[in-house]
Design a protein around this nucleic acid. Structure first.
Lengths: 344, 344
DNA sequence: AACCCTTTTGACAACGCTGTCATTAAAATA
DNA sequence: TATTTTAATGACAGCGTTGTCAAAAGGGTT
C-alpha cells in the first residue's frame, strides 16, 4: 500500500540508508548505485514522507510565507513565485495570512514556526519592516528573507530582496514632467507602509530634480484602495490651483481617480493625466489604460524563496553561509500607456 | 530550547501519554488532570509538533487545496475561507495550484498527497469535475470534498458543496427581462467548465420561462477574461438584430464588454444593459457599477473545509461517517447596480 | 472484606526518515 | 605484497508524537 524507503532499498538491493543518501543528493554514493536506486524509486513511484524527514532532521523541508496584503493579485503572484521555487527544491509552503495590526502578531508567527517546524520564513511588507517580529525570529534563530520596498535598510544581518520603488516612482513622475506637466498631484497608499514612503520620495525627487517646487497641498494621504483614489481626486480638484496630472501609489488608487475624473467629465489624459504603480490587471482594464510601473512580483518572490532555501541547505550541508547577508535588487519598469500619453 | 510533550508531562506531573490525550481532547481524562496539563502547556508555551503527529498517526493534520483558477480574488477568498476553518481545528493547509489541462495532473496530485500525507483534499472547479482525479483519490481512499457549480451531480459518494449558479443566472436574466429587455446576449466563460454550462442553462431557462425564443446567435463562446468581454461585445454588435442587454458569465467579461461599449459611445444602461456574475471587486470599479450575482466564496470554502475535516475527525475517533455523503448548498444572490437599472 | 466492573493512567513499541559512527571495499602508497 | 588512506555502504539509535495494551485507582455489590 504505502511505499517506504525500505521497499525501495529492498528492490535496489542496498541498505535504506543509501537510498536516503540518494534522495538527499549526498556525495559519496557510487554513480551506478545512484542509478539503481533512482530506478527503484521510479518503479515504485516512491515519495519520501515529509513528516518523517522533518521529524528526523533538525532542519525541515517547509518554509512559511507571511503576508497581510489586501491586494489579491500581489498575494497570488508572490505565492506562485515562492511555490515555484519550493517545488523545484522539494520544499513545502505554509501560508500565513495575518493582520499587521494584531497585537499578538509576533506570538502568532512564532507559534506557527514551532508547530510546523518551519525552516524559514519569507516576510513581505509590512511584516518585513517590523522590528518586533524580526527580533523574535532572530532570537529563535529562524532564518528569514525580507522583501523590502527601497534600496537599503538598517537591519542588514538578514538577506533582503530590495524593490527599488523610489527610482520607479521617480521615473513615472519624470515621464509626466516630460509630457509638460508641472503641477502633479500625489495620492499615497497606507500610511506607515514603506512602499508609500518610497514612492513619495521618488515623486519628490523627480520634482526637485526638475526645479519644480514641492507643494504639500498636492500630496494627499490615502490608502491602497479604489475609494481612496476617488476621494483623492476630489481633494485635488478642490484646490485653487488644480493639478494637470496625478501619480497614485498603486493601480487601484489610480483607477479610482480615473473613474472619478471621467465621472466629472474630464478627458484623460488631455485634461488630466493619471499614472499608477504595480502593473496589476486593473491597469489594463480601465479606459484609457493606465501608465504604471511593472513590478515583477513573481520573480521577486522566487528570488526571496531561493535565497532562503539556499541558506537552509547550506546550513544542512555544513557549509557556513557567508557572513555577509545576500541582498538582491529589483527595479520596477516604467510602462507608458494611454492614461498619460497620446501617440501622435 | 525546544519544548516537547515530555517537558509538559514533567511539569504537570503526569505521563506524557496523558498530555497527548489532553491535546487530542480524548475522553476519559479527569477534569482536574486536564486542568493541570493545560496550565503546564500554557506556562511552557508548548506547541505540538505537527510532523511527529503526522508520522505517528495514520491520519494527518494537513489538508490540501487544489485549484487552477486565473481569478486571483476567487482563489484568495477560497484560500482564506479554508484557512479559517483549518486554524479553528488545528489543521494545516497545503496549497496546490495546477493546470487543469496538464496530462500528468492526476499523478501530480497523488504525489502531493503522498508526500505531505494529506488527510484530505478540497477540489475546486474544474478539478472537482475530473473523473480521473476522483478515481485515483477513491482508489487510495483519500477523502475529498468537491465544490461544484450546480445543484446535483452524478457522483454522489463524496460530499459536495453545491453552488446554484443556474438559479442565480436565471435571476439575473429575469431581472433584465423585468427591465423590458427581450433581446439579451450571453457571453460564456471557458468551455467545458461546469459553471459556464450552468450559467448558460439559467440564461436559457429565464428566456423560456418568459416565452422569449432562444437565438443561438446571441450566445457567444468566450473565456473568463476581460478580452473575451471586449470580443464578445463586438460579435454581438455585428449582429443584424442587436441585443439591448448582455449577461456575461463573470464580472471580468462584463467589465470587458462595458469597456468596449463605452468606447463605442454607447450609454450603459440606457442603450445597453450589462450584467456580470461573481461580485468581484471589478464589479464595483467600473462605471456604471455592475449588476451581478454575489457568491459567498469564503463561506463556501469554509463549509467545504469543515465538511472534510469533520469526516477525517470522525474516522479518527472511530465513529463511522454516515453512509450518505453530506451535501450542502449555496445560492448566489442577485445584486442590482447601475449597469442594468436606473432608479427613478 | 472480597469481588467485579469501570474509569483513568502509564509503559512501550511503532511511524519513516536522518545523523552518527562503524564497517567494508577500493585505491593509493610503501 | 603488505600497509595505509580514502571512498562507499551499512547498523542502529533517535526525532516527538500516537496506538495498543496492561496496570492502577476507584466505586458498587454481595
Amino acid at each position: 500500500m504505502k511505499t517506504t524507503i525500505k521497499d525501495v532499498a529492498k528492490l535496489a538491493g542496498v541498505s535504506f540508508k543509501t537510498v536516503s543518501r540518494v534522495i538527499n543528493n549526498e556525495a559519496s554514493v557510487k554513480p551506478q548505485t545512484v542509478e539503481k536506486v533512482n530506478q527503484a524509486i521510479a518503479q515504485l513511484n516512491y515519495q519520501p514522507n515529509t513528516a518523517a524527514r522533518n521529524l528526523a532532521s533538525a532542519n525541515t523541508y517547509a518554509i512559511g510565507y507571511v503576508y497581510d496584503n489586501p491586494n489579491a493579485y500581489y498575494v497570488i503572484n508572490m505565492q506562485n513565485g515562492i511555490l515555484a521555487e519550493c517545488r523545484n527544491r522539494g520544499y513545502e509552503l505554509i501560508i500565513h495570512p495575518c493582520h499587521a495590526t494584531s497585537p499578538t502578531l509576533t506570538e502568532e508567527i512564532i507559534k506557527m514556526c514551532k508547530r510546523s517546524q518551519l525552516a524559514g520564513l519569507v516576510l513581505s511588507p509590512p511584516m518585513s519592516e517590523m522590528a518586533g517580529v524580526m527580533d523574535s525570529l532572530d532570537e529563535l534563530a529562524i532564518p528569514y528573507v525580507r522583501i523590502v520596498s527601497g534600496s537599503a535598510t538598517k537591519r542588514n544581518h538578514r538577506p533582503c530582496v530590495f524593490v527599488h520603488d523610489r527610482d520607479a516612482a521617480r521615473n513615472i513622475v519624470e515621464h509626466l514632467i516630460a509630457q509638460g506637466h508641472t503641477r502633479i498631484g500625489f495620492i499615497s497608499g497606507d500610511q506607515g507602509h514603506r512602499s508609500t514612503e518610497e514612492r513619495k520620495l521618488g515623486y519628490r525627487e523627480a520634482l526637485t530634480n526638475h526645479g519644480i517646487p514641492l507643494d504639500r497641498e498636492l500630496e494627499i494621504d490615502g490608502t491602497y484602495s479604489f475609494e481612496s483614489g476617488v476621494k483623492g481626486f476630489k481633494q485635488l480638484r478642490a484646490l485653487g490651483d488644480q493639478p494637470t496630472a496625478i501619480f497614485a501609489c498603486n493601480d487601484e488608487i489610480a483607477s479610482g481617480s480615473l473613474f472619478a475624473a471621467r465621472l466629472n467629465g474630464l478627458d484623460v489624459p488631455s485634461q488630466l493625466a493619471i499614472a499608477g504603480f504595480e502593473n496589476s490587471p486593473f491597469s489594463l482594464q480601465t479606459w484609457p489604460k493606465l501608465t504604471t510601473a511593472a513590478q515583477p512580483t513573481g520573480e521577486i518572490a522566487s528570488q526571496a524563496a531561493a535565497t532562503l532555501i539556499e541558506e537552509i541547505q547550506s546550513k544542512r550541508t555544513g557549509r557556513l553561509p557567508s557572513e555577509v547577508a545576500q541582498h538582491t535588487h529589483f527595479h520596477p519598469e516604467l510602462v507608458v500607456r494611454e492614461s498619460t500619453y497620446i501617440p501622435d
